[in-house]
């Protein structure tokens, strides 16, 4: 009755449910330039979270953005975040792919992240569209979307200041025991859906890990978790854990991008390529 995640943790010899250690990421698979039609595109898998991003532009502003754009000197970024109705690995179906409050919120957050890395002053009176399609969800989907969007921008040849990298850190242990051995106490990175559902809080952190030594620069923190409160004393450790994750992801993506570019001297062209 009172048994819980703590038992689980001990039984697994400190491993997480899927066999990872606290600071280990899931397997990352990258494909860039998956659409010929788009100006840039990327497909990214982190474990069973699978996301496709297409980038169009820069082009002339259209729609409401065009009307409002008169005052805007710099470029405009338009983000649309949508989730496939069949995407939940737990089996439920989403009612509508986009336009609900959560999707709109995520679109907005994604735009913020993109604005911080694109050199918008290079594109006066232009618009860049970023379309995110979440194909399958198994936790951390917002962070994976940011990562995939970054790759798609690179694929489109749009100059960026740095990778915008997202990573979650989740408190999955039920305890606050001050045991330095229990590495879960500082949170686990790249949480799966199951881990996000555990009673602890989950932080989604978007960082620009390469830009400067000051890791907190350009940090976007989104907290989620079913009405959970996160005590301030645990925030620091959790944030550091997530930042470590961000750096690891950046390194993996950077390697993938460089390999992609050497194989295809021109971006956004021809066939798929898988980098494991």
């Amino acid at each position: 009755m009172l048994e819980g995640d703590q038992d689980q943790e001990e039984d697994q010899g400190g491993l997480r449910n899927d066999g990872r250690r606290a600071a280990e990421l899931r397997k990352i698979r990258v494909r860039m330039g998956v659409f010929g039609q788009a100006d840039g595109s990327a497909y990214l898998e982190q474990g069973n979270t699978k996301i496709l991003v297409a980038v169009y532009g820069p082009h002339q502003p259209r729609g409401s953005a065009a009307r409002a754009g008169g005052k805007n000197v710099g470029g405009i970024i338009n983000c649309q975040y949508s989730t496939a109705v069949f995407s939940f690995s737990a089996g439920e179906r989403k009612r509508r792919p986009r336009g609900d409050r959560k999707s709109i919120e995520k679109s907005l957050q994604l735009r913020r992240a993109m604005e911080s890395i694109i050199q918008l002053d290079l594109y006066p009176r232009s618009q860049i569209d970023v379309f995110v399609e979440v194909l399958q969800i198994d936790g951390s989907e917002y962070c994976v979307a940011v990562n995939a969007a970054t790759l798609a921008l690179i694929d489109a040849g749009i100059p960026i200041k740095d990778y915008a990298i997202g990573c979650t850190a989740s408190l999955i242990d039920s305890t606050s025991k001050n045991d330095e051995d229990s590495s879960h106490a500082a949170g686990v990175v790249d949480a799966t859906y199951m881990e996000e559902c555990s009673p602890g809080a989950t932080l989604s952190i978007i960082a620009l890990p390469g830009s400067s030594n000051d890791a907190t620069k350009g940090l976007v923190v989104v907290a989620q978790g079913a009405g959970q409160r996160l005590h301030l004393s645990r925030l620091e450790a959790l944030r550091n854990r997530a930042l470590c994750g961000c750096r690891d992801i950046r390194n993996i993506l950077d390697r993938a991008v460089r390999q992609h570019l050497t194989v295809h001297s021109q971006p956004s062209f021809s066939t798929l390529h898988v980098i494991d």
Binding site: G19, N48, A90, G91, T192, M194
Partner: peptide
């Protein structure tokens, strides 16, 4: 997995070997 309503869902989970 079978839900309470009797629907059957496929659940896929990763399992890492070390």
């Amino acid at each position: 997995r079978k839900t309470k309503r009797g629907n059957i869902f496929k659940i896929v989970r990763e399992h890492y070997l070390r």
